[in-house]
């Protein structure tokens, strides 16, 4: 728009965001200028379409029910934490504290899928650096052996064109976790975590599948997919933002029946 005309100021006029002097000046111009009048009219119509042409859809009733159930879980967990702290102060024993920490944790509706996805995002953003950088699965297993309280099994994904990049000792839901990452073609990454847990502690998934007799619990959250499965007393999860079926296929390939 050339110097003599207005553009954004026309919208300010429409939305009543000009002071009286400016308003008078812009209005005087609009009264004389067909071009600016036409822009103003477009803005008015665009605003009207947005205001009147986009009715709100009803919320599926299950959605609010699900949220309330999650809030119930979180409410209980707040209370449990508070009681736990008081009892800990009263007794003051480390062993009891460890027991209470577990009890408190179990009552919180676990959001492991979200935590695992956050771990993936943070890794990708460079905020969860490796403790050990190695392409060698046995070397990483040896690294984890003295650092996490369970046995890790770091899979060789070479035949699927995924190379181990490294790993770190991480936390998932307040528990120690072994986190390791594979780098694949097209800058794809797969983050794996292992930690002590059971499938029954997980929230309702998007989908459940079975493959080679192993139960898989699948969460699709936006661009991300998280797939959990059990191996003895440990839960494994893989997370990626590659197409969901590819993440699931990698989980199927990695899982072993225990």
């Amino acid at each position: 728009m050339s110097g003599e005309h207005f553009d954004l100021a026309l919208q300010d006029l429409l939305d009543g965001r000009l002071n009286p002097d400016e308003q008078a000046r812009v209005q005087a111009h609009v009264d004389e200028c067909a071009e600016c009048r036409s822009v103003l009219e477009d803005l008015r119509r665009g605003r009207a379409w947005a205001r009147d042409g986009l009715p709100a859809a009803d919320v599926p009733p299950d959605l609010v029910d699900d949220l309330r159930r999650r809030l119930d879980g979180a409410t209980r967990s707040r209370s449990a934490t508070w009681i736990g702290r008081r009892r800990f102060l009263a007794i003051g024993a480390g062993a009891v504290a460890a027991g209470l920490a577990t009890a408190v944790y179990v009552r919180r509706g676990h959001d492991w899928p979200n935590e695992a996805i956050d771990a993936y995002r943070e890794f990708r953003a460079g905020r969860r650096p490796f403790d050990a950088e190695t392409p060698d699965p046995p070397a990483l297993e040896a690294f984890f052996r003295t650092r996490v309280p369970f046995h890790t099994r770091v899979f060789d994904f070479g035949m699927m064109n995924y190379r181990l990049a490294g790993g770190r000792v991480d936390r998932l839901g307040g528990r120690a976790a072994a986190l390791y990452v594979y780098a694949g073609p097209d800058n794809r990454h797969l983050v794996c975590e292992m930690f002590v847990g059971t499938l029954t502690e997980l929230t309702e998934p998007s989908e459940r599948r079975e493959h080679n007799g192993i139960p898989f619990v699948i969460y699709r959250r936006g661009a991300y997919t998280a797939v959990f499965w059990p191996e003895t007393n440990v839960l494994c999860v893989v997370v990626s933002d590659m197409p969901a079926e590819e993440t699931i296929a990698l989980a199927f390939a990695k899982a072993v029946k225990t």
């Binding site: 553009d7 954004l8 919208q11 822009v39 477009d42 803005l43 119509r45 665009g46 605003r47 379409w49 947005a50 042409g53």
Partner: peptide, 11 residues
């Protein structure tokens, strides 16, 4: 500004 102009033009 651009969004409103787009709706107006499209509709």
């Amino acid at each position: 500004f651009r969004a409103r102009k787009h709706l107006a033009a499209s509709l």
